[in-house]
Amino acid sequence: MTKFAIKYALTFLLLIPAQAIVFNHMILFNVALPLVFLYLIIILPITLGTNISMLLSFLAGAVLDVFCDTPGVNALCCTLVSFARKPLFHLYVSMDEDLAGFSPSSRTMGHAAYMKFMSTVVVLYLSLMFTIEAFQFFSFKLLVLRIIASSAYTFILLYALDCLSLRPRRA
């Protein structure tokens, strides 16, 4: 667990500035925004208490809000997604399995289940975020386009990140 905590802290310190400085500026066609920092919510162990996982997710969202001048937007979405994370996970993985120290990834869950879980989290997060933002300028067509394009873009980058983190190690 200590090893995971150190690894998670390092990922946090790397991904939040990377999201603010790099990924927030990689917008495609003015609609597709990649939110790679969602990896921080996805990889939290399923057996970790919901309270701790919500606090960690809230912290990630709040820090990103400071960087992006979007007070409360990411913090609220992170809290909501983190709250719904465990039930979403059990849509694709049986309750009966031994989940001690289980951190969702394509290796632990299998490709198909992980892709479904990841895409559900991504679509839920982006739908919430763009709906909150749509209170200012509402355009249903633009809202749907932004959710679909950003979800696809984020999904590809998150899958690439997962593959990178699971590089085969030499014996």
Binding site: T50, N51, L55, F58, A62, T79, L80
Partner: peptide, 26 residues
Amino acid sequence: HSKWFVFALLAVISTAMLLSNDPYRQ
């Protein structure tokens, strides 16, 4: 039921931040 209370607390804090969007008062 602590997870519901923690969830409500964090959601209220985030919503308060979200609604106080006067840029000069931040």
